[in-house]
């Protein structure tokens, strides 16, 4: 409970910055992790039975709920024979004192678009198989990302949640008189991994404070075969080529571990 605001957020950020910076110089992180270590992850699937697929992901204290809904609809005119994916993220004010109600702003839009990019570009979902009648009717996959608790790095939690939810998604044929229910055809498991640059060091899976203080982050989405299907640099500081290569390597290793631990079908 915050009855009095003791110091401005700017002052707090400055103190926090110095504290974390000095830790990094000693090779340490505030929560005791090594630089390339993820926080504890749990994934619970099929948590919402009104959704066609769902997953609750916790990453440290971060909690993200992803629900997938599938409905028949019209294809886009320029792609009449493929299904449609629509990804939406909400940074609801429940999740953080910094989030405000209202239509998605740039932070939420970026998260939704990066998660969407990973799934789309990895060709994880065979969109051709989602065509019912060419030019008239295709399956539309709505991926809705609900951030419940922002403990940092919500992007990776959202990405893991999205693919975990898709892996449990059923195409509801029976509900719409379009044949039998069948599992959504998922061919690949893209996983987004975010690394921040801070004090010249690279820190995997930034905590809330690390994320706030770091000048820049790079999210790399890798697939089962190690190929890359999406990247997003975010933040104001530049990265060197060498740093980028190291980040890609770290992301690949971390994604592999998460995939084998949690997401193999």
């Amino acid at each position: 409970m915050l009855a009095v605001i003791p110091m401005s957020n700017d002052v707090m950020a400055e103190i926090q910055h110095d504290y974390l910076f000095n830790l990094v110089l000693k090779g340490e992180r505030a929560d005791g992790r090594s630089f390339d270590e993820f926080r504890e992850i749990t994934i619970e699937t099929n948590v919402i039975d009104t959704a066609d697929g769902s997953a609750l992901v916790t990453l440290g204290t971060t909690q993200v709920l992803v629900g997938v809904k599938v409905q028949p609809g019209e294809p886009f005119p320029d792609t009449p024979d493929v299904g449609v994916i629509i990804t939406n993220a909400e940074l609801i004010p429940m999740a953080s004192p910094e989030f405000e109600a209202g239509p998605p702003r740039e932070g939420a839009i970026e998260i939704a678009r990066v998660v969407d990019r990973g799934i789309r570009e990895s060709k994880s979902i065979d969109l051709k198989k989602l065509c019912v009648t060419e030019g008239e009717k295709v399956w539309i996959i709505f991926i809705d990302i609900h951030i419940l608790d922002n403990g940092g790095n919500i992007l990776d939690a959202a990405s893991i949640g999205a693919i975990a939810a898709l892996l449990t998604t059923t195409l509801p044929g029976a509900r719409y008189d379009e044949g039998e229910d069948m599992p959504l055809p998922v061919r690949d498991i893209p996983v987004a991994i975010t690394t921040v640059e801070f004090g010249g060091e690279l820190l995997l899976d930034p905590s809330l404070d690390e994320g706030k203080i770091a000048g820049t982050s790079l999210t790399v989405i890798t697939n089962s075969d190690g190929s890359i299907s999406g990247m997003q640099k975010s933040g104001t500081d530049p990265l060197t080529t060498d740093q980028i290569i190291r980040i890609v390597d770290m992301a690949k290793t971390a994604a592999e571990e998460i995939r084998t631990k949690f997401l193999e079908v």
Partner: peptide
């Protein structure tokens, strides 16, 4: 939540 009911509601 958009997925809390049978037919998806707009967020």
């Amino acid at each position: 939540a958009s997925f809390s009911v049978d037919d998806r509601i707009r967020p």
